[in-house]
């Protein structure tokens, strides 16, 4: 439980942090909340030579709406989202997700940006961000780059982020009228990684049909997954029981879970089906103004 030797550096600006990443390359890791990185280091599963602590950089903890998006800073903690009135009133999917990430101790430190950059398929934010079509702002040596979330995850623990880039902000589209979302998770105990979890986001048109559908899946594949076929199944249809069941079935077929201590793949597939059904019903209810 004692990590390997490492050098600790604490830059005071994003530019300085990027400079350090340029200098140390793959030997450096960015430290934000540290609740994935530090345990890996203690088990010596990760042994970075340099730890670039961004916690002293000012201005990275924002959580506010402007220009049609919600901006979530690189140092905005899970607990900030969990307790934000803005999130509670306007972003039900995010509010649901923030409440079920790990436990309060982790939520006080861990960050949304760090969770995405870590790219653990068991991370709840990946599925949530896929459902709402978020964008990742990467700051590197040149100008900022905006990466659609669909192009962000490459593989387990691997993203399209460059070795000299830092996730400086996450941008979530503002909710449309008649929209609703939900996030549901089944876990072995509070604080556990999901056996499976799902995020759903729907925008209804005036006739009550689904104009827009977003479905993200957690811990049922090598990366956080978007259930594209399930989304297509539902798009344009009135989300009645039949349509929801079709979408749920499609999601359970397109996910790709592995059998492990949490359960066999067939169970996880079935859980995705059950959870998608429940989460879509809740999202639709919310889109119609329900709680």
């Amino acid at each position: 439980m004692i990590p390997d030797r490492f050098e600790y550096v604490a830059p005071s600006s994003v530019a300085e942090a990027v400079g350090l990443l340029q200098r140390y390359g793959a030997e450096a890791k960015v430290l934000a909340g540290g609740h994935s990185l530090i345990p890996l280091m203690k088990l010596r599963l990760a042994s970075p030579r340099y730890l670039v602590d961004i916690n002293r950089i000012r201005g990275l903890a924002q959580l506010q709406e402007d220009d049609g998006t919600l901006g979530v800073g690189a140092l905005t903690r899970h607990a900030d989202l969990e307790t934000s009135e803005l999130i509670r009133s306007r972003y039900p999917l995010l509010a649901d997700a923030a409440r079920v990430i790990a436990d309060p101790l982790v939520r006080n430190m861990g960050t949304l940006a760090g969770s995405l950059a870590h790219a653990d398929p068991a991370g709840d934010w990946g599925a949530a961000m896929l459902a709402v079509r978020a964008q990742v702002v990467a700051t590197g040596p040149r100008r900022d780059r905006t990466i659609p979330i669909d192009e962000f995850f490459v593989d387990t623990f691997t993203t399209t982020l460059g070795p000299d880039e830092i996730v400086s902000e996450i941008r979530v589209p503002k909710p449309s009228p008649r929209s609703g979302g939900a996030y549901l998770k089944v876990e072995r105990k509070v604080g556990d990684f999901a056996i499976a979890a799902v995020g759903t986001y729907v925008v209804l048109d005036e006739k009550g049909a689904c104009r827009q559908v977003g479905i993200g899946l957690c811990n049922v594949g090598a990366t956080s997954l978007r259930a594209k076929r399930a989304e297509e199944t539902l798009r344009g249809r009135v989300p009645d029981e039949k349509a929801i069941a079709d979408a749920a079935r499609a999601a359970s077929e397109e996910c790709d879970p592995a059998s492990d201590l949490r359960g066999p793949a067939e169970y996880k597939r079935d859980l995705v089906r059950v959870l998608i059904g429940r989460a879509l019903r809740r999202a639709v209810q919310r889109a119609k103004g329900g709680a």
Binding site: V186, R188, I195, R262, G263, P264, E266, Y267, D270, L271
Partner: peptide, 11 residues
Amino acid sequence: ITPRRVWEALE
């Protein structure tokens, strides 16, 4: 008796 064991028994 974890969720998976209940599910497996009912399957």
